[in-house]
Simulated scan of single mutants.
Amino acid sequence: MNDEHGSIEGTVTAVSSDSGHGFTKPNRESVRLLTGLGVEGDAHAGVTVQHRSRVRRDPTQPNLRQVHLLQAELFDEVAAHGHRVAPGDLGENITTAGIDLLELPEGTLLHLGDEAVVRITGLRNPCYQIDRFSKGLLKEVVGRDTEGGPVRKAGVMGVVQQGGVVRPGDPVKAELPTGPHRPLERV
C-alpha cells in the first residue's frame, strides 16, 4: 500500500526460523536479525552461502540469501488451485501482507519493526522440494510471462543491513533505491 508520500508499506504477518536444513520453518513469536548474517539461529544465516546446493558449488560465495521474505497473498492464490500453504511452510523467515515484494527493485531497503533493515538482493529460485511439500505447487509458484520467460513468485531474498527483532504485527516500509531501478533476478 502506498501512502501520500509515495512510500510502500505493509505488515509482518508471521516470522519463522529453523536451525536445521528442513524445508518448512516453524513460526516464532519473534526473530532477531543479525547485521550481515541473517536470522539468529537459522540454518541459512552466515556471511557465506549456507544453502546446501550453493555450498557444494562454491562455499566461499557471499550469502545473498540470508533472509527469505514471502507475501501472504500468495497463499490465497495457490489455494485457488488446491494447495494449502501457511506461513513458514515454504521456508520463509518473514511473511508479509499488503506489500508486493516481487515488484520491488533490487536494492530496496525493507524497514521491519523498530530497528531491522533488510536489503533485497533478488528473487527466490524455487526448486523441486516445493512439489514434495504439495504436488503441483512448483507449477503455481513458477509461471511464464508472455514471452515464455519464468515468473518466480516464491518470495524475495535479502541481506541484513541493520539488525533488530521482528514480530508479527510489525510494520514493513520499503525504501526504494536511488537511480535507475533494476528488476529482481533470481539469486
Rank of each mutant, 00 (worst) to 15 (best):
E115W: 12
K173F: 02
E140W: 03
R119T: 13
V159P: 05
R167D: 01
V118H: 08
V172D: 00
M157W: 14
G163Q: 02
K153N: 12
V165S: 04
K139T: 14
G88I: 12
V159L: 04
K139S: 15
E103F: 05
A154V: 03
F133L: 15
R144I: 09
I120G: 04
V142A: 10
T121C: 08
M157A: 10
L137A: 10
I120Q: 06
V141C: 07
A174K: 01
T95D: 02
G148W: 10
V156Y: 08
E92K: 01
E175L: 13
L104N: 02
A97H: 06
I99Q: 06
G155T: 09
L176A: 08
T95V: 12
I94K: 01
R119Q: 15
Q129Y: 11
Q161Y: 04
A154W: 02
I94W: 01
V166P: 04
G148H: 10
E103S: 15
P168H: 01
P171E: 11
N125G: 15
G88P: 10
L90K: 00
V160M: 13
V165F: 00
G164W: 07
G163W: 01
D100I: 01
G155D: 09
M157L: 15
G149E: 14
R124F: 08
R124W: 09
G164K: 07
M157K: 06
G169R: 08
G149C: 03
K139V: 11
L176C: 07
A154P: 00
I99P: 02
R124D: 08
V156A: 07
I99D: 04
R144V: 13
Q129N: 12
E92D: 12
T146P: 00
F133P: 02
P168Y: 02
L109W: 15
A97K: 06
R132F: 12
D131E: 06
D145A: 12
L138P: 04
D145T: 13
K135I: 04
Q129F: 09
V118K: 09
V165R: 07
L90F: 01
G91F: 08
E140M: 09
G163A: 03
H111I: 09
T178K: 14
P168L: 03
